[in-house]
Design a protein around this nucleic acid. Structure first.
Lengths: 158, 158
DNA sequence: CTAATCAGGACTAAAATGGTCCTCATTAAA
DNA sequence: TTTAATGAGGACCATTTTAGTCCTGATTAG
């Protein structure tokens, strides 16, 4: 369905947290403590984000992660690309399909137009904005309230 | 991930086919034959679309389905709503989360802005456009080429 | 040498998805 | 009245995907 994966959500939360002090070094354990995600989950996310170039890592004692770019230069599209691959609401093949499936090709063009609009919307929102507290009491996105699912809890909170 | 489900794709194809003759009555078997989907799948899709009010059904011999509205008055957003529920790239709860998850609420506002932009893009594209053949040779969306997956084949084609 | 950190990847349980199949209801035609 | 052609509802299951954990190895400062 047209929904960001939970891990992409978590990645945004992790990055939003790091964006509160963009130049600081954050360890996975620290980020986990502040975001109420498990260390294992945060570690996994940070590795993925590192590979995608959104954060930089430093190994060894005194190691950790920092944002690779200022929050204003990391977009929502970047985050999604990093976690889920290029935004593509439909599976666009690069090679043509069997001719008898022409009726299917009929919808491809319009979907691609939609895809571009979505990418544009995602590209216009930066991590700086994603980490800004909202100015009105809107229905908030959160994990705990997700129907039928729970935030991965750390053992000490069980 | 940010992707329409296969069944939503199929539903679009089904509706695009029906849009080629908007006033005609189509049976599930006919639509299946023309779209190369299995009758069972098409039947399932059409039931869902009927419940959502996008098509109207007629039981009994000489029964079938018709579009409930002209193609120009059915949007991509309508189709996705029917198949997947309201477009929501993030799980926005209507009740506030635990206060300690405030850092998560931080991203909600921006996601909702993105959500509105996506809904707008989807609302602007109609079934009439979705069923129009593209005017240039673009990488086409099709099912057969989907990596690792196959179109549900009818037994006679096996 | 030790402790604190990241890196890579394997593994598994749970959830979601896609697809099928069955029975029942409706309706027109024979 | 019966038959055939159609839709309606829903259960079920195999497959795929996702989420999350765990382990070992590498790096680095102290």
């Amino acid at each position: 369905m047209l929904r960001l994966s939970k891990l992409t959500d978590y990645a945004t939360v992790v990055l939003a947290h790091m964006a509160t002090s963009p130049d600081a070094l954050h360890t996975a354990a620290q980020v986990a403590a502040c975001t109420h995600l498990t260390p294992a989950t945060v570690s996994k996310l940070l590795k993925t984000l590192t590979r995608a170039g959104l954060v930089s890592s430093f190994r060894g004692a005194q190691g950790g992660y920092v944002l690779a770019r200022p929050p204003a230069r990391i977009s929502a599209a970047d985050i999604i690309d990093a976690m889920e691959g290029p935004v593509a609401i439909t599976e666009c093949s690069t090679s043509h399909s069997l001719c008898e499936l022409e009726s299917i090709c009929r919808t491809g063009h319009a979907w691609q137009r939609i895809n571009r609009a979505i990418r544009r919307a995602l590209g216009e929102v930066t991590l700086a904005e994603l980490s800004k507290p909202s100015t009105f009491r809107a229905p908030a996105f959160n994990f705990a309230a997700t129907i039928g699912s729970k935030l991965p809890m750390k053992p000490t909170e069980l």
